[in-house]
C-alpha cells in the first residue's frame, strides 16, 4: 500500500504522518507540491502545518497547486484521501469535502487533548473503530471551527466523521470536527490521529486511521 504524504512549503506534520503510516504497516512516500502525477499511489494523506504560512487564509494557496490536480485524479480513481488539520482546511478550500473550517470561537491558537466520538465507520479511516466509539486525540489549530449551512444533508448522507465529546474547544457547529465526501473516501479531520499513534504520547487511539488506509 503506497501512501503519498503531500508536502507543501510550510507543512510541518509530514514527518509525523510518515512515521504513523510506517507504524501502521504502510509504505509512505513524500510527494512535493508541484507533482501532478500521483498515479503510482494507492492513497494520500495531506498532513497538517502552515502551508505557505497560512498567510492569506489557511489552505488558500495550497488549494491552487499542481498536486491538487493529482489528488483529484486519485479521487476519480476511488482511492482514499485523508486531510489532517491544515490538510483538512485544504480539502475544504478545494471543495472536496463540504463546509469550511474557520477561525476558532476564541480566536487564539489552541493545542489540547480532546475526547471524540466516531460518528461513522463507513470511511476507510474509521473502518476499524465501532460507531460512537469515544477516542482521545489532540487538536492544534487557530482555524478549526466547522461551519456548514446544510447540516441536515450531512446527517442524511452520513458525512459526519468525528464530533467533539464533552468540551467543544473551537465552537464548531454541532461539535463536528471531521467530515467526509458523499463516497466516504475523502475525509477531513481537525484532530491529529498521528499525534495519538503511540501510548508513550498519551494515546494510540489514532493509529487505526492509518491502519484503516492500509486495510482498504
Amino acid at each position: 500500500m503506497k501512501v503519498g504524504v503531500i508536502r507543501f512549503p510550510g507543512s510541518n506534520c509530514d514527518r509525523d504522518v510518515y512515521h504513523a503510516l510506517e507504524l501502521a504497516g504502510g509504505e509512505p512516500e513524500y510527494v512535493w507540491w508541484n507533482q501532478k502525477d500521483l498515479s503510482n499511489l494507492d492513497a494520500a494523506v495531506i498532513p497538517g502545518g502552515f502551508s505557505y504560512g497560512d498567510y492569506l487564509r489557511a489552505g488558500a494557496i495550497a488549494a491552487i497547486t499542481p498536486v491538487i490536480d493529482g489528488i483529484k485524479s486519485l479521487v476519480a480513481e476511488e482511492k482514499p484521501v485523508l486531510g489532517i488539520c491544515n490538510g483538512a482546511q485544504i480539502l475544504a478550500e478545494v471543495g472536496l469535502v463540504p463546509g469550511v473550517f474557520t477561525v476558532n470561537e476564541n480566536p487564539k491558537f489552541n493545542c489540547q487533548w480532546t475526547q471524540l466520538k466516531v460518528k461513522t465507520t463507513r470511511t476507510p479511516f474509521t473502518s476499524l473503530y465501532h460507531k460512537d466509539q469515544i477516542i482521545k486525540m489532540p487538536v492544534a489549530h487557530a482555524e478549526g471551527r466547522y461551519v456548514n449551512e446544510d447540516l441536515e444533508l450531512l446527517h442524511d448522507q452520513d458525512q459526519i466523521v468525528l464530533q467533539f465529546e464533552g468540551e467543544n474547544p473551537n465552537g464548531s457547529m454541532e461539535a463536528i470536527t471531521g467530515v467526509c465526501d458523499e463516497t466516504g473516501l475523502i475525509c477531513a479531520v481537525m484532530p491529529h490521529p498521528e499525534r495519538a499513534s503511540d501510548m508513550i504520547l498519551g494515546s494510540d487511539d489514532g493509529l487505526n486511521f492509518f491502519k484503516g488506509i492500509i486495510n482498504f
Binding site: N12, C13, R15, D16, H19, A20, G48, K108, F109, N110, C111, Q112, P138, A140, H192, E194, R195, S197, D198, I200, L201, G202
Partner: peptide, 13 residues
C-alpha cells in the same frame, strides 16, 4: 501553553 503547539514532531511524552 495551550497557544503553543506542544505536540508536533510526536516526541512529547
Amino acid at each position: 501553553y495551550r497557544q503553543y503547539d506542544h505536540e508536533v514532531q510526536i516526541r512529547t511524552m
